[in-house]
Computed example of a mutant assay.
Amino acid sequence: MKSYSIRVSNIDRESAFKRLALETGGELEEGHTLIRFSSEIGRGRIRTWHLEAGLYMRVWDLYLLKPIEFIKEALPVHITNNGFSLLCIHTPESVELRSINQHHQFNKVRERRFALVPDSVTAGFQFNPALPVQLIDFSISGYWIRNQPGYLRIAKYFNDGVMEDGGLPVLIEALQSKTGQMATKLIDSVDDPRADATALFMQGSGLIKDFLTAAARGEQEKTSSHIELYYEKIKEAESILLDHLQKTPPRMNMIAKMVALSESTLKRYFKLIYGKSVYDYYLNKKMEMARTILLQKPYSVNEIAELMGYEKVSHFIEIFKKHHGCSPGSIKKKQLENA
């Protein structure tokens, strides 16, 4: 059976919607907001709405006679503006996620799902024939999504080493039953040119917010479980730092390699466990040791600076003062006065 390919880019341009009409062999209707087609590939409707600044929605309601490869094309990095595409897959039996960039081999998903993909990433889907194909896709600007509750967790997922850890730049979450009901209402709206704009915005933005809430909750649960998973390795990293308090510690990438973690995972979970960055924790322990030696040993400030691995005494004094609020010389002087 011959398959067809539909390539789409961002949906916030009329030209992209016209191109989609050409690729499906459909007719543009109702002020270029609806594509209606009935051809050898099948029949169906695709409607687009501009919900508000930075937020566009497109609803697909199709019945296909031929398999279709649906490709969401990556946008050039210089124009993505940290935006995303969010796909709400309402008929998982007929819509399969097949590829992310050059990575293939995805398993079939048999439940309704969201898939969030950065605009800088290419995602490939397979639309299967002889079944209803229903999905909703959103084009979300970086500005719009940054103002939504739950965004920080999303940002951490994509920015905090997802690629370094061998992950893929896609975030998938299951639809809850109430969210699925909301999606059904939106799909029913594809036939209503006079659908209430306020209701559409509330339903569309509600879908996105439900996804963000589920993703934030899932990321929090995953983080908690990973703390247990990485705890021993982070303790190993701490031991390496403590062994180097009187000398220059290994570079971060070397410590990560020594404990078999990526650098981003080491940084992230070290801070979650100890409440400080790796460097701040190391410096705190180093300055605590310097103060202990200063109070317990008959060494001069110069000798302690050298003992702690500083080539320049002035550098040691500067860091000591920032950490303890007073110079090592003043502590030494006060100690001698009280002797």
Rank of each mutant, 00 (worst) to 15 (best):
E73D: 09
Y281P: 00
E69Y: 05
Y56F: 13
M252K: 15
A174N: 13
I100V: 15
N147T: 03
F125C: 01
Q134L: 13
I304C: 04
K156N: 15
P328W: 07
R217I: 08
V109W: 07
T48E: 04
A130C: 13
S189W: 01
A183I: 01
R43W: 01
K286E: 11
L116H: 02
Q246T: 10
Q335A: 08
M258R: 07
T184G: 00
P250W: 14
Y310V: 02
L22H: 12
M1W: 04
L65V: 09
G142P: 00
E40L: 03
R45P: 00
R43L: 10
L22G: 12
C88F: 13
H324I: 11
I154A: 02
S224V: 05
R98I: 02
S277G: 12
D210F: 04
A216H: 12
E337Q: 09
L152C: 07
S330G: 01
S94K: 08
E221K: 02
D191W: 05
Y63A: 13
Q102F: 03
A195K: 06
V162C: 04
F84W: 05
T179N: 00
C88D: 10
A155E: 15
N302C: 01
D210N: 13
R58P: 02
K235P: 06
G166S: 08
A216L: 04
K178M: 08
Y269D: 10
Q105S: 07
I68L: 14
E14T: 15
A215P: 07
I187V: 12
E23T: 11
R7N: 13
H32R: 11
A115L: 06
V8K: 00
M252N: 11
S224N: 13
W144V: 03
S39N: 14
K156H: 15
K297V: 07
S330H: 01
A123C: 13
M57F: 10
I187H: 06
S9R: 03
K267S: 15
M1L: 06
F211S: 10
